[in-house]
Write a protein that binds this DNA or RNA. Structure first.
Lengths: 231, 231
DNA sequence: CGATGTATTATGGCGTACCAGAATATAGCT
DNA sequence: AGCTATATTCTGGTACGCCATAATACATCG
């Protein structure tokens, strides 16, 4: 073969995922999107019927999701969608703060206009999603914003950690983004992060990121507290 | 039943773990302890023979460990013990710094002598393990130190995150603790953390924790770089 | 000796079955 | 109606088997 070609120039891509991978995506999405709710039992034979796969596949999927923290396995109760109490939720927001703050600081110190540009694009998408009342768009554009924050400074491991934690609070996130004024305040706080990054101010970027996630956490705490009172 | 009794006074404890749980512990320990090394293939039928369980159990264990990041699944290669490159290792040390720093600060702000006492006990255990040349004792006592740091300020979620990450660098950790002078410098750096916590100085505790993990990371980086040069 | 083609073996994907224990339903008694 | 005992159903634990594909071994040819 022509020595000039890069070694991947004609590599065959493998298009198909296994049944297990497809099923994993489906069940995870069903939990994250609220189709299965916290506390719901995940009965293996029911999942087989719903997904159209064998118990082998279902069991392997459940093992994976248990490890991710989305599923809890209670003795003699079988698997259920994991519940998240107020204390755990608070801790997740706090950890996100520590890691997102760190990433924001690194972005600022990088002084790369491309980072600012990419973040601005996500922010614009968030605003547009709010305007279109597209809440799932708001969530995915927000994820895009943070993915940029981490991956532009090569922090894939931290991004993985934040992702796993964020998935566990997705239900809360879908609630917090809908609260009064959040459509204005949320993007404004994120704009502060971007501003500090544009100015190369690491400390300000760090604080702005911390502040944003702390406020989101405070809203979530109020919502959870109200929910637990109502029960 | 006598109303004076606490509701758990006669509760039946369930002593037995499932085969899957036992197997999961065995395989995880085998990876963490270096019995299986990074890059080793984990052939299902071989694991069945070694563990004395069916492929169902083995597959579920592999799914769990994949999700934890200890096992990687390559298309048409099957599962292997995950490798950790220099970049990922550095990121793990950095994340630990952010979270352990946060926990150290919270410990200092708590101003609770019991925390200091518990940390001193772990530190003493680390020193004794070094003196006895018991490296696995050093590792487990160090884990005890950090578990205390997190759980004494009710940060179980962060502790879970740090634990998952630490397990991935256990091989590196067993190397860093053996380097020259580490038996003296390591505990001395940890003593600084405890000192700042005793004095209620959150900022100093934060910085000392950051410093300690950064130095451990630097040693690990040097070891990994040497290792990759030798290959 | 290297390249190619073919045969054989290895291995992961996936499905099905059986068992034991827990949960639930039902019957009987007071 | 409530309690207890028994029967039935449900469900997770675990094992085994088959298939298809990939990897490896081997044979042949130039």
């Amino acid at each position: 073969m022509n020595a000039d070609l890069p070694s991947t120039a004609i590599r065959v891509e493998r298009p198909n995922k296994t049944l297990r991978e497809l099923a994993l995506d489906k069940v995870r999405d069903a939990i994250v999107d609220g189709y299965f709710k916290p506390g719901d039992r995940l009965v293996e034979r029911d999942l087989c019927a719903q997904l159209g796969v064998s118990r082998t596949i279902v069991r392997e999927v459940l093992r994976h999701l248990e490890s991710e923290g989305l599923v809890a396995n209670l003795p003699n109760k079988g698997p259920i969608v994991a519940r998240l109490d107020l204390n755990e939720a608070k801790q997740i927001y706090e950890i996100r703060g520590a890691l997102e703050g760190m990433a924001a600081r690194l972005c600022a110190e990088r002084r790369d206009p491309a980072i600012v540009e990419a973040l601005e694009a996500s922010l614009k998408g968030i605003r547009e999603s709010y305007a279109a009342k597209d809440m799932s768009g708001v969530l995915s554009q927000t994820s895009g914003f943070y993915q940029t924050l981490f991956t532009k400074v090569d922090r894939d491991v931290a991004w993985g950690v934040v992702n796993l934690l964020t998935v566990r609070i997705n239900h809360l996130r879908s609630m917090t983004i809908k609260t009064k004024n959040r459509d204005v305040e949320g993007p404004a706080q994120m704009e502060k992060i971007v501003e500090a990054i544009r100015e190369g101010d690491g400390e300000a970027a760090y604080k702005a990121a911390l502040d944003h996630v702390a406020r989101a956490g405070a809203i979530a705490e109020a919502l959870l507290a109200a929910q637990q009172t109502a029960e």
